Amino acid sequence: MNYEVLIIDDLPIIVDGYINLLSKTDFQENKLNFIKSHNCEDAYNKIFLNLKRQVNINLALLDISLPSYKEFNINDGVDLALLIREKFTDCKIIIITMYSEPLTVDRIIKKIKPEGFFSKNDITSESFPFICKKIIDGNIYQSTTIIESQRELFKKNINWDIYDNEILILISQGVKTTNLPNYIPLSMSAIEKRKANIKDQLLEGKGSDKDLVSKAKKIGLL
């Protein structure tokens, strides 16, 4: 039977590389059918095209940093992964990224709960298809860099929830506080309270957004 695999990365050579590696692997009864995409808009359209055709996407491999699709508020691979989770509930999701900052890693794990989470620096042409096969067979996998990143957050005694993480990440990306409700489903007063709590922990309550981002980077959170 066909096993539908959606691969999303902004570099076509990366997508083709993943396909070549997976094509050489024995998946027994599963014949892999690949769907390629390089940005959020194209991926969004292909997700809904497969829904319309009643074709189930079984496995999705995607990067986080992707050209956005502002019209439908799909800003990155995290938003795409959430969409895939909603539309294809049995789809196994593998995140493959260069990002390994503790807050980013924590955000992805809490929001998506991916079956696979790799740093691109950790995978090789030999290990990649073997790990993907294990995930298809029902295993959960996180690469060494991702595990170490989570340990760093634990060592720093940071236990914010997903919204706290998103507030700091979005501020670091230049999003103004007044615009945060456009990205986070919280009221402005709730966001302000959370932001004040973050500043209390990192800056003892004193400092600007720039100081907050600078401190978070200095201690390795961003």
Rank of each mutant, 00 (worst) to 15 (best):
E192V: 05
E148K: 13
V105T: 09
Q201G: 15
S187D: 09
D161Y: 07
E166T: 04
N139Q: 15
C132W: 04
T144S: 14
K134T: 08
N179A: 13
F154K: 13
Y141I: 10
T104L: 05
P129M: 07
G174F: 06
Y141D: 06
Q142T: 06
G138N: 10
K156A: 10
G116E: 03
K113H: 11
I162C: 05
K193M: 13
W160C: 03
F128A: 02
I184A: 02
E115K: 09
F117K: 03
T97C: 10
N197H: 08
Y99W: 11
T177M: 13
A190D: 14
E192Q: 13
E148W: 05
P102F: 00
I109N: 01
D137P: 10
I147N: 09
F117T: 02
K111A: 15
I167G: 07
I147P: 05
I112G: 03
S172T: 06
I94Q: 04
L168Y: 03
Y163E: 03
I108S: 00
N159Q: 13
I146Q: 01
P185I: 03
R107M: 09
K176M: 11
E204H: 08
I112W: 01
E101S: 13
E192R: 09
S125N: 14
L203Y: 03
W160L: 08
I94S: 00
L203S: 05
S187Q: 06
A196P: 07
E204G: 10
I131L: 15
S125H: 13
R107P: 03
S172H: 10
I108G: 00
T124W: 09
S100W: 02
V105P: 01
K134A: 13
F128T: 04
K195Y: 05
L203G: 04
Y99G: 07
L153G: 03
I169L: 08
L202K: 07
I158T: 06
Y141T: 07
F117Y: 14
A196D: 07
F117R: 04
T124E: 11
E148D: 14
F130N: 14
E101F: 08
G138M: 12
I95P: 03
N182A: 11
Q173M: 11
W160A: 06
N121E: 15
P185Q: 00
D161L: 09
I146L: 04
Y183G: 06
T177D: 15
K120F: 04
K156E: 06
S125M: 14
K199L: 01
F128Q: 01
T178A: 15
K155W: 12
C132Q: 04
N121W: 11
K199D: 03
I96G: 05
E166V: 00
G205A: 05
S119I: 08
I147A: 12
M188I: 14
T124V: 12
Y163S: 02
R194E: 02
L153H: 02
I108V: 14
T97M: 04
R194G: 02
D164N: 10
